[in-house]
């Protein structure tokens, strides 16, 4: 039975990394948002499974937060925003897809090597989850760095936060208060960034941050 628990947890955490790669691969805004919702759903499942294994009731709340806010509210809000912004729905990337994917694979390898070595002797379940969580965080950062579209940077940031929640759920004993406050800070960040998005669009008719650099007279 333990073996099955472990495998399912492993599968769900791995699924999170997979959705991170899917996020990296998207070049349409709506598809990106849908993939993000999918990732949030997978996260909710992973956290819910952890709650089941650890018999930790508060993790169910975390999973519920993930479903309600991350899988429904935020993608919906971003959908509306993109629609209202009326910008073209393509993701402008600075680095093309193939090198990004390769870099992503390298990052996953790196986080595996680091985490598995550092957490030697810890609970195998937590070890795997931590390694996957670090991969998700790094992939989120990679997405923020390689995309110049503001919306996709926001999504990168959110997926980074998903990695944090996965790590927190795996490491037993993270208080619920912290998780809730993290969730809310992300929500606030979304609002702030949303306002910025509109301001940027007002001025430059695009959410491509490259336009800001051009405006400052920087060369590409």
């Amino acid at each position: 039975m333990d073996r099955l628990y472990f495998d399912i947890a492993h599968l769900l955490a791995g699924g999170l990394v997979l959705t991170s790669f899917m996020l990296l691969y998207q070049d349409r805004l709506y598809a990106l948002l849908n993939t993000y919702a999918l990732q949030a759903l997978v996260l909710a499942l992973a956290v819910g499974w952890q709650a089941h294994i650890q018999h930790a009731a508060h993790l169910y709340i975390t999973a519920a937060i993930a479903v309600i806010f991350k899988a429904l509210v935020i993608p919906f809000a971003l959908h509306r925003m993109v629609a209202q912004l009326g910008v073209h729905r393509e993701v402008e990337s600075v680095v093309s897809l193939v090198p990004t994917m390769l870099a992503g694979i390298a990052l996953v390898a790196l986080s595996m090597v680091v985490m598995l070595r550092v957490t030697e002797g810890a609970d195998p379940l937590a070890r795997e989850d931590l390694a996957f969580a670090l991969s998700v965080i790094l992939l989120g950062l990679l997405m923020m760095v390689t995309r110049s579209n503001a919306v996709s940077q926001v999504v990168g940031f959110m997926s980074l936060e998903n990695g944090l929640i996965l790590a927190a759920a795996a490491a037993k004993g993270m208080p619920l208060v912290v998780e809730i406050s993290v969730a809310f800070s992300v929500l606030i960040a979304l609002i702030v960034i949303g306002i910025f998005l509109f301001r940027i669009r007002e001025r430059f008719d695009t959410v491509d941050l490259q336009a800001l650099d051009d405006f400052r007279g920087e060369r590409r």
Partner: peptide, 21 residues
């Protein structure tokens, strides 16, 4: 630019992880 600052943070993080590895 914002993206370059992010890249700096990202690069530093990856470098430290590499060093650790």
């Amino acid at each position: 630019t914002i993206r370059q600052y992010l890249s700096l943070v990202f690069g530093a993080l990856v470098l430290l992880l590499l060093a650790l590895a």
